[in-house]
Computed example of a mutant assay.
Amino acid sequence: MKITDETITYVAALAKLELSDDEKDRAKTDLENIISYMDTMNEIDTSNVEPMSHAFPMKNVFREDVVTNGDERDNLLSNAPVKKDGCFIVPKTVE
Rank of each mutant, 00 (worst) to 15 (best):
V11R: 08
N79Y: 13
G70I: 01
P91D: 05
I44E: 01
D65T: 08
V66Q: 03
A80C: 01
L31C: 09
T40L: 05
A55G: 11
D85T: 05
S53K: 15
K83Y: 05
T40K: 07
M1F: 06
T40Q: 14
S53I: 07
I34S: 14
D22F: 00
K59G: 15
M52H: 15
L17C: 14
N79I: 06
I3Q: 04
D22Q: 05
R73V: 11
I44G: 02
A15S: 04
L17A: 10
D65Y: 10
D45A: 07
F88L: 12
G70D: 01
T4Y: 01
S53N: 15
D39H: 13
N75A: 11
M58R: 15
E43P: 02
I89H: 08
G70P: 09
D39A: 13
I89A: 11
K16I: 00
E18M: 09
S78C: 09
K84A: 09
E64C: 09
K92A: 01
R26E: 15
Y37K: 13
N75G: 02
K24W: 06
A27I: 09
S78Q: 04
L76A: 10
M1C: 10
V66T: 07
T9V: 03
E72I: 11
V82R: 04
S47V: 03
N33T: 13
T68Q: 07
T93E: 08
A55H: 11
A13T: 09
F56M: 14
T68Y: 01
K59V: 12
D25C: 05
N48D: 12
A12F: 04
I35N: 12
V11D: 03
A13Q: 14
I89C: 14
V61C: 11
S20A: 01
E32T: 15
D65R: 12
A13I: 05
L14Q: 10
T40P: 00
K16Q: 02
F56P: 02
T29P: 02
G86P: 00
